[in-house]
Design a protein around this nucleic acid. Structure first.
Length: 426
RNA sequence: GGAGGGAUGGCCGAGCGGUUGAUGGCGGCGGUCUUGAAAACCGUUGUGGCGCAAGUCACCGGGGGUUCGAAUCCCUCUCCCUCCGCCA
């Protein structure tokens, strides 16, 4: 959520930002109008309340003095004022509801450092690290490798749950588990993150906090009877860990890492990436989340990207960093970098991480604040998050990069201790 | 799932429907005293909205109601605790 004061004082700049994002400016105009109306009503209703408070106090006084007639006369007057207040309150509630709805639909403002661009074609490849492996045979895609090794069972996944589901088996299941454990250990022991195991189901207000609701509800699974929603990413529960709290500034930055399953409808991408394990309704991810002081936001974003890259480096897989232009920023991001791994079998760069800085956008929605000093005014924290990393796509990159001519897979060095010393999946 | 009991400020804990944003204690902060510390004593100590400001309004788990006036009465929801049942 944006600061309404900032919107009032910088109307033109905010509208220009919507233009750069390729977003409609309708909610901005709407929110500003409703805000004006809201303040108008507020002024009226509060003046009436003040009058009633004084009157009621006086009635109490008169009653105690035994002046019953005087009290009753005043009561009649206050009753009228009460009616007026009731009427205005009703209108105010409507206006505030509409105002809040509009505010929740306004995207974050891009950080000044973000390149202006129309869509993903204008994203910027910041750098590429590592040389793609040269093969003396034709590298196979993971769906062929996985099926041949009997470590990915696509047919039975579909039998159980339908399209976009698969089963990992034997060394395949263990490889994913090894990756999860190794990534968590890397981030907790080398990068200063504290591990969190959060709920996989959350209340709707939690999804509003991170910005998934109200706008993106159609990508979420939910319980039919109760207000339970399956998380689309660990970002949701972990960012909301400190919602409605005022944190001690001495604790910042707080860095958390969590491994969870993630659930997404993927309605928007029907027909895309249906082959293999690249895009499923359920996938595992290790996610990093940071709570930082406002002035540290951008530095923390860069180190977040670096933390994600360390996973690529450790696995010895070439990767590149792509900076999103304004037109490709997500709803909540002020700045965003993707980390992409090269997958030689399917021959594409796979997005394995998305690292975003949200400034105070989520903090306002979830009401997460901190105090610089004891006794200081509460301020909103800045939140960030990034995948560290998404498992299926790392699995793809590992299987395809480390494949041998005979169809076996060499296990990357860092993972061997996590696989009972196994060095070859055959 | 059944029965009962709770929810008040950082914490504990009061609060006949009328100067109660809320007694008191603890904790925190500032001060007096002290070579320093402790003790003692004095003071101070929530969040948010609107307003240039003076100020004003709201908030005692959430929502609704009764009333001139609600932390206090009524309805409802949520959460916590105890007991019974069930259970990985």
């Amino acid at each position: 959520m944006l600061d309404i004061k900032v919107m009032r004082e910088n109307r033109d700049a905010v509208l220009a930002a919507m233009e750069a994002l390729g977003a409609t400016d309708a909610p901005v105009a709407q929110a500003l109008d409703l805000d004006e109306r809201r303040r108008q009503i507020l002024g009226q209703v509060e003046a009436l309340r003040a009058e009633r408070n004084a009157g009621s106090k006086q009635i109490g006084q008169l009653m105690r003095e035994g002046n019953k007639a005087g009290g009753q006369a005043l009561q009649a007057r206050m009753s009228e004022i009460g009616e007026e207040i009731r009427r205005l309150d009703e209108e105010l509630a409507q206006v505030e509801q509409a105002f809040g709805d509009a505010m929740l639909r306004i995207p974050n403002l891009p950080h000044p450092s973000v390149p202006v661009g129309r869509d993903e074609t204008e994203n910027v490849v910041v750098r590429t690290e590592g040389e793609p492996r040269r093969f003396d045979f034709e590298p196979k895609p993971h769906w062929d490798l996985g099926a041949a090794l009997d470590i990915i069972d696509f047919d039975r996944g579909v039998k159980l749950s339908g399209t976009r589901f698969y089963v990992l088996k034997g060394a395949g299941a263990r490889l994913q588990r090894a990756l999860i454990a190794w990534m968590l250990d890397l981030h907790t022991t080398q990068h200063g993150y504290t591990e969190i195991y959060p709920p996989y189901m959350v209340k709707s207000e939690v999804l509003v906090g991170t910005g998934n609701l109200p706008k993106f509800g159609d990508n979420l699974y939910r319980d039919a009877e109760e207000d339970f929603w399956w998380i689309p990413t660990a970002e949701v529960p972990v960012t909301n860990l400190y919602r409605e709290e005022i944190l001690d500034g001495a604790l910042l930055p707080i860095r958390h890492v969590a491994y969870t399953a993630c659930f997404r409808r993927e309605k928007m991408s029907s027909g895309r990436d249906v082959r293999g394990i690249k895009r499923g309704h359920q996938f595992d991810k290790v996610e990093m989340v940071k709570f930082v002081r406002p002035e540290d936001s951008i530095d923390e974003l860069l180190s977040l990207v670096d933390n994600a890259e360390d996973v690529c480096r450790g696995l010895g897989i070439p990767h590149r960093i792509v900076q999103m232009c304004t037109g490709d920023l997500s709803f909540v991001s002020a700045a965003k970098y993707d980390v992409e791994m090269w997958a030689p079998g399917c021959g594409e760069w796979l997005e394995v991480s998305s690292c975003g800085a949200f400034m105070d956008f989520q903090a306002r929605r979830a009401n997460i604040r901190f105090r610089r000093e004891p006794g200081a005014k509460p301020e909103y924290v800045h939140t960030l998050n990034g995948s560290g990393l998404a498992l299926p796509r790392v699995m793809i990159a590992v299987l395809e990069t480390y494949q041998n001519a005979d169809g076996t897979i060499t296990v990357p060095d860092v993972l061997r201790p996590y696989m009972g010393g196994l060095s070859l999946i055959a």
